[in-house]
Design a protein around this nucleic acid. Structure first.
Length: 197
DNA sequence: GCCAACGTTGGC
DNA sequence: GCCAACGTTGGC
């Protein structure tokens, strides 16, 4: 899970973005993730995101975060949208993303782009609000859009060819930072105005 | 809490 | 470069 932790100024301790100590037998060291870290592993995505030919990738995103307490190596990873709101400037630095692809998406994000704030690994997973990138609270969703509801649409759209037919939330599971097409983004926004299905 | 899915590690 | 073991994510 991405652990968006507000960057506590000095506090860091052993928590470089990529620093998972030598737990277990895995000890091959990872590259310290400099910004320079190369696109290495990240084969260019074949998703719709990369089809925007000339222009850069997606402008819309979905970011997962856990709203319920859970200890990971002694540290609580809880970070809900309420926690984001409570930050200075309602803004948090999004670190702790380990997955290469998710990290590459993180780098591709540009200031001010919009993203859904998704609550994962919790009682009722779903989209809680809107943020803009670097990561600042924008607003709550007018109603909580649950995973179950999104999935219903996703499944319908697979057969009808609707806007969520390729949604990464379902096709790329475990990706904690993911691009959305504008169609996906708009469709999900439009759900706010409707009765939960 | 369980466990499926899947990414990562690292020996070979 | 394969692939088994292991770790993590995240729904249920």
């Amino acid at each position: 899970m991405p652990k968006p932790r507000k960057r506590l100024a000095g506090a860091a301790g052993p928590t470089g973005p990529d620093n998972k100590g030598p737990a277990g037998k895995r000890t091959k060291t990872k590259n310290p993730v400099g910004t320079s870290a190369t696109l290495g592993n990240s084969s260019p995505e074949k998703t719709s995101a990369s089809k925007n030919c000339g222009k850069n990738l997606s402008s819309y995103w979905l970011m997962k975060s856990e709203p319920e307490s859970r200890l990971e190596k002694g540290v609580d990873v809880k970070f809900s949208i309420e926690d984001l709101k409570a930050q200075p400037k309602q803004t948090a630095c999004w670190d702790g993303v380990r997955n290469y692809q998710a990290r590459n998406f993180l780098r591709a994000m540009q200031l001010g782009q919009e993203a859904f704030f998704y609550h994962s690994n919790c009682k009722e997973p779903g989209i809680a609000g809107l943020v803009k990138v670097d990561v600042q609270f924008v607003r709550m969703m007018k109603r909580y859009i649950t995973l179950a509801e999104l999935k219903t649409h996703y499944q319908a759209h697979k057969t009808t060819g609707g806007p969520l037919k390729n949604m990464a939330l379902f096709t790329r599971q475990r990706l904690s930072v993911q691009p959305l097409t504008r169609e996906e983004f708009d469709f999900i926004l439009s759900l706010e105005e409707k009765e939960p299905s």
